[in-house]
Design a protein around this nucleic acid. Structure first.
Lengths: 180, 180
DNA sequence: GCTACCTATGCAACCAGTTGCACTGCACCT
DNA sequence: AGGTGCAGTGCAACTGGTTGCATAGGTAGC
């Protein structure tokens, strides 16, 4: 599994506190590996005990002390071990499919509304991703190394949302026609 | 949440035993809501205790007795309650994105191989879905009601796999070019 | 002055899902 | 005779993730 590894990747790019990591996860990495601060704190402590990361306590005035974590040698080893290890392809798990399957039970109109709602939410996410793409990667063909990888991950998000929205449109259209 | 509801939907379509449900999940519903037999047995018992389903023990010769479950009134009520309830859009969670982000750490070639492997697996899944589509829904425009919903769910699977494979191709191409 | 939100950490309880195993008996292959 | 695989049920232990709460001082708006 991979929250550990997601954290290692993020900390390798830049050291940071649990809180900061949670912020980062809310943005980039969390788009394809969401995590809450509780989970991050817990895993960080475990990784600290295992020697994968080390922390330095930093006193701040006006706000609580923070522990800044950085990747230790054992963490780097673990990360490259994991990178080389084959991983099971992710499965999709979306309750919306179940609801659609259940729509024949007289609730077709409610389910239709729900799908429209999901469409809107995914469309918003898509706009966010496209905004980031335009702002941070205006010239994709010039990218190399880490920047390229980051761009490609974002492209994955864009594609996933695009295809989801297109599917919603297909479903909405078909359900409307079937209703008449 | 929804394993309960996935089971209710499946049992509403047709009564069945835990084992049969697990088989069904391996096919249709499991494509977007995977579940193992253990999980299904456990949830079935819980739902039985809650009065959402009822079972009849059926003796069979040559093989173990089975408990055939059918949806009770409370289960139908719960299902329509859930169908009307708004659901959080699913998040994607794929370790491959994390690996790609970690590819800058000298492991670019290993990660490339891993992405090729995932591409192959998703392409296989896609072929399976397309096969089902051709076999079970040769004329989509004539579909209505439950058949239509089932078809649309399958379309979701097809679209998701298509877009994933296309993303893999984009990534593979970009990484190869970057390697040179 | 009050509410609300941000930085910052953390505990505890819970829920859902995974993994490994156990038992029975038939059918099929080698 | 032995292995594999299917049909059928189930327990136990574990892991990963979610939710609710606690603490604490600072900032910003009404």
């Amino acid at each position: 599994m991979a929250l550990e590894h997601a954290i290692l990747v993020s900390l390798t790019e830049r050291a940071g506190s649990g809180y900061e990591l949670a912020r980062r996860f809310d943005r980039s990495i969390g788009y394809f590996w969401p995590a809450t601060h509780q989970q991050i704190y817990r895993v960080l402590r475990r990784m600290d005990e295992a020697g994968w990361v080390k922390h330095t306590e930093i006193a701040q005035d006006g706000r609580p002390d923070k522990k800044v974590y950085r990747v230790a040698a054992a963490g780097r080893a673990e990360l490259s071990r994991w990178l080389a290890e084959p991983e099971d392809p992710a499965v999709l798990r979306d309750g919306l499919g179940v609801k659609l399957r259940g729509a024949s039970l007289g609730a077709a109109d409610v389910v239709l509304k729900e799908i429209e709602r999901h469409r809107a939410e995914h469309a918003t996410r898509l706009e966010v991703y496209r905004g980031i793409q335009k702002r941070d990667f205006p010239k994709p063909s010039t990218l190399h190394g880490r920047d390229l990888h980051q761009y490609l991950v974002l492209r994955g998000g864009v594609r996933a949302e695009e295809s989801f929205v297109a599917w919603c449109d297909e479903v909405i259209d078909a359900l409307r026609k079937d209703n008449r």
